[in-house]
Write a protein that binds this DNA or RNA. Sequence first.
RNA 1: UGGGGCGUAGCCAAGUGGUAAGGCAUCGGGUUUUGAUCCCGUGAUUCGCAGGUUCGAUCCCUGCCGCCCCAACCA
Length: 563
Amino acid sequence: MDNDTGEADGNGAPTDFIRDIVRADLAAGRHGGVVTRFPPEPNGYLHLGHAKSICLNFGIAQEFDGRCHLRFDDTNPAKEEQEFIEAIQRDVRWLGFDWGDHLHYASDYFAQLFAWAEGLIEAGKAYVDDLPVDEMRAYRGTVTEAGRNSPFRDRDVAENLDLFRRMKAGEFPDGARVLRAKIDMASGNMNMRDPVLYRILHSAHPRTGTAWCIYPNYDFAHGQSDAIEAITHSLCTLEFADHRPLYEWLLENIAVPSQPKQYEFSRLNLSHTVLSKRRLTQLVDEGRVDGWDDPRMPTVSGMRRRGVPAAAVRDFISRLAITRNDGQVEMAMLEHCIREQLNVAAPRRMAVLRPLKVVIENYPEGKSEALVAQNHPGNPDMGTREIPFGREIYVERDDFMEDPPRKFFRLGPGREVRLRYAYFITCNEVIKDASGEVVELRCSYDPETKGGNAPDGRKVKGTIHWVSAQHAVPSEVRLYESLFNSEEVPGGDDFLDDINPNSLEVLPQVWLEPALAELSVGQTVQFERMGYFCADLSSKEDALVFNRALGLRDSWAKIKGKS
RNA sequence: UGGGGCGUAGCCAAGUGGUAAGGCAUCGGGUUUUGAUCCCGUGAUUCGCAGGUUCGAUCCCUGCCGCCCCAACCA
């Protein structure tokens, strides 16, 4: 897994309203230092939206010489799993961030949280409610109508305490009662209408096992966890802005050790894909993709498997800017960042994806020779390698046209092209099968053009890649396109109808130059003229599999498209 | 119709009283043994709309319009 170029990401120190706040707070001496946290719920894999939050939180900690905690918001055992806890840590590390010894879990604080809840009850600020879910919903009112007080709202402290402790002791079934904060059923902010703080859930927790059968919900766990860890700036996405008054209410009404502040920024939306855990989970569970790390997934693990360098993800995020605007970033922006990293880092190789056999008639039978090729034309430090050449080679089917248009610079009857790092060849004869399909080309080469230059100074317009048939190594190659057709994927369950049926194309027999057989899993190279490719996890010595991370920019496709 | 947010080029976005940065995309042109890379050039008389304040407004005020989020014992 070493796609990282080690290059500096982006350019210049990022600036945004949150960093402005941090800077001002530090300048005013409001904190000893900045402490942030990335708080994922372990109920799925991390995606690019999380990457934005990770880069923001860890990035600020780095820039201001503070620290960033990794804290699992594991308050809902019904949905959370150990597998996700591990995958998340792997992904954060791969992105290049380190939480040091600050790996925390909201579940570490269950005992403290419980004690604080008791305190709230004693202060008359929380009560146990017996209302069934649907009734509680009815009592909550609507967005335009105030709610009504629950008939259980005025239970006395002793009864509340007793009931709450019995909830903890497991005396009641799931859903029988909840603990609620006593705030204001008429608030315009739904979150302040006596929000639920604890619910009964007889469900084993990945970390605390069966020690608990009541669990705090997000609102009761998050802010207090921040306070326990002395988080200074608690950064979250915009949909939590409405929770801020509750976040603050809890911090004011509980004797917490510190007073963190919450700030919201807009979440990332990317064209041609979905960035919601619910929908990504559905794609995985319904088998629409090959798991969370399917290279078409916008997950961190999907990017990694596809061959995208972590530096490209970081660079992409750094170009986004942190704001409160809703918007959708074009996939082209991500692709640009990927190409920029890979163009510099990826060694060049040759592979023929859709083979067409070429026999070089004037090249001696049985002869072969080693030709020298650069590993990176723009970077001599990456060295050279030898590529075997012989009488029979494969070239790309798309590099031959029987009746080529004026602007086509590749092979055609009677045309001469350069074989990259090899010789000029001229097409003399086209061989077809019974159905009229071209199956082979008969060509001649010019021995004087070895290496690719003609001593007589004559030029060719096209240079194509090739692989010696005798030495070629077979491989499977998977080409990916965007998972969804629409720039803006439709909401609801309609998103499934928008799945691109051609998002995966498997090429069963691709011919590789021999050097490619030595590539280890996770390394990304450029197949010249074809794009960037990465050896897949499933790749075996005798059954190589490559994923295309991304194609090269293709101006020929545009020219062709216009005519 | 309650509460909370947001509106600067196709996309992301700086600027927040002195006359519209940058990146991506697009479209031109040059270099090139990858139609890649690289290099150069290319777009807002205008900042959601309408009024107002001001010598001057994207920036201040008023009104309007549009979009997003909130009625889980999810996070």
